[in-house]
Each structure stands twice: as C-alpha cells, then as structure tokens.
C-alpha cells in the first residue's frame, strides 16, 4: 500500500523561502500563512479563467519560496483588486494587497510581466497623472494603443464614446501640478514602460 508520495522526501524549506514570504507579508500588511487552502477565493474570482496560477496556489507558492514561478505568472497582472476574495476569505488574507506586493517585487527585480499590456496601461495612467494631476482618458487610450502597437482594435468603442461626449479633448488639470510631480520623485514613481 505504499503510495509513491510516501517515498518522496519531506518538503524542505530553505531560508530563502522564508525570506520571500516575509517580504510579501510585510509589503502587503497581511499574513499569507493564515491561508488553509479552502479555495473560496478561487471560487469567487471572476478572472481565474485568465490566470495561469490560481490565487490560492499563489499563496502556497509564496510560502514555499517559489518566487520565480509566482513573479512570472499572469495571475499577478490579471488581478484587478476587486476584493471579492478578501470579502469571503475566512482567514482575512488580503489577496489584493498580496498581488500588489508581488507586482512591485517583480518590477524591482526587473522581471518582464507575463501580461505586458497591463504594465503599459498602468504607466500610461501614471504618466497622465504626472503630466496633468488627473487622468486624461483620450490621451491615455491613444498612448496605450500606440505603445501596444494596436491602434485599430476597439475603434468602434472609442468612436461611440466620443459621440456620447465621454472622452474630453482637453485634459482637466491640477493648478499646483508641481506638488503632484514632486510625489513621483519621493515615491520613485518612475515609469516602468
């Protein structure tokens, strides 16, 4: 009755694996060790279909120190932080904050995102905030399309939005823009695109 798994050596956690989990926990202000894999987050996430590693698997891999696997997943770039999972989690794990932390560690290490369009989009938004203090949707969309070398998809949506006066031609601006720009240098909020 020996199953093959009984012959495997017990899992050995290295110091490195603990360091990674500790870093994620401290950045995210949450405790990933609390997760007991009930899969509630998996079952409520509207976007699991677009993720290559499920959210509960991400938590377990963080504990195992599998940083490369986690940081190269599409999951961390697909999560939009809707907090549906946080609301249902019986262990109060802040999944959205874990994803934020992982994204930031990936950027720090210069790991190219598995969903590059997401980073291009976020950077287009941040550039707009740096320039005007507010988001200028028309310019963001155009920039995103250009950087993504995809000018023509969604043309119909854009035209509809223009026709319904949902895209302003001119940006709305913050007057004391230098106050906003200074924040970008404090926080090293540089563009990563």
């Amino acid at each position: 009755m020996n199953s093959p798994s009984q012959n495997k050596p017990a899992l050995k956690l290295s110091r490195h694996s603990r360091d990674f989990a500790n870093k994620v926990n401290s950045l995210a202000h949450t405790d990933t060790r609390m997760c007991f894999q009930c899969q509630a987050c998996y079952n409520t996430c509207p976007f699991v279909g677009a993720m290559d590693v499920t959210p509960p698997a991400i938590l377990r891999l963080v504990l195992l120190g599998e940083d490369k696997l986690v940081l190269n997943s599409t999951t961390i770039w697909t999560c939009v932080g809707c907090h549906t999972c946080s609301t249902i989690c019986p262990q109060n794990v802040d999944m959205g904050a874990v994803m934020d932390a992982l994204r930031q560690i990936a950027l720090e290490r210069g790991i190219a995102p598995a969903q590059p369009e997401v980073l291009i989009f976020h950077n287009a938004i941040l550039d707009s905030i740096k320039k005007y203090g507010r988001t200028h949707k028309l310019e963001i969309m155009l920039r995103y399309k250009m950087k993504n070398l995809d000018l023509f998809s969604d043309m119909d949506v854009g035209l509809k939005m223009l026709a319904k006066r949902k895209l302003d031609m001119l940006p709305s601006r913050v007057k004391k823009i230098e106050q906003v720009r200074r924040l970008f240098s404090y926080s090293n909020g540089k563009s990563n695109g």
Partner: peptide, 14 residues
C-alpha cells in the same frame, strides 16, 4: 487623481 488602480498596482508609496 486618487491614483486609481494603477498607482497601488505599481507603487504603494505613490
């Protein structure tokens, strides 16, 4: 702008 989804996605401090 409050920072929207993008600021906290890439840079918590910002």
């Amino acid at each position: 702008c409050c920072g929207s989804s993008s600021a906290h996605s890439l840079n918590n401090g910002l």
